[in-house]
């Protein structure tokens, strides 16, 4: 049995539970001072562990690399591009045919008129699709930024 008081290291280790109490059982049974010291440390450690979590109390500004979203060019798919080129060529040919038909026959004028009509419709369709895609893209970017702004506050 250990007669002298436990060292500060031993008391802390016993309070932390990193030291086996059995080793000092004999001494602790009759030494109120050492027992009190261990209890004091245990009270402090318990209170320390129960401290409420500290928070920043303000929002962190995210790095600029995150907030600055690059607005990419509208992606144009190959079939749409091909269709656009084809429509442009058809329209050009139609205009040329129409100009030529002014001095020749009426039938040619009619056929050229149809071509012009179809080409114009295709062009309108392409334009509408491009505008819709552009709006969708802008809307997604806005939602992304809004989600970030609301999501970063806690």
């Amino acid at each position: 049995m250990k007669n002298e008081h436990l060292s500060e290291e031993e008391i802390q280790a016993l309070a932390l539970g990193t030291e086996n109490q059995g080793k000092f059982y004999g001494h602790l049974q009759h030494c109120l001072q050492c027992r009190k010291s261990i209890e004091t440390y245990q009270t402090i450690f318990t209170a320390l562990a129960q401290q409420p979590m500290i928070t920043f109390g303000f929002d962190i500004t995210p790095p600029a690399e995150i907030t600055k979203q690059k607005v990419k060019r509208m992606p144009v798919s190959v079939p749409i591009l091909a269709l656009g080129i084809l429509s442009f060529l058809t329209l050009s040919l139609a205009i040329m045919g129409w100009l030529a038909s002014r001095t020749t026959s009426h039938g040619l004028l009619l056929s050229n008129g149809i071509i012009i009509g179809v080409a114009t419709l295709i062009l309108c369709g392409l334009l509408v699709e491009m505008v819709i895609k552009y709006r969708r893209k802008i809307s997604t970017i806005r939602q992304f930024n809004l989600q970030h702004l609301t999501g970063s506050s806690f």
């Binding site: 962190i60 995150i66 970030h148």
Partner: peptide
């Protein structure tokens, strides 16, 4: 990948430690 939601989560997960 510059995902803003990930940054928010990163801050939330580490707030306690950094604040301490």
């Amino acid at each position: 990948n510059r995902e803003p939601a990930a940054f928010t989560l990163f801050v939330k997960n580490t707030e306690g430690l950094v604040a301490e």
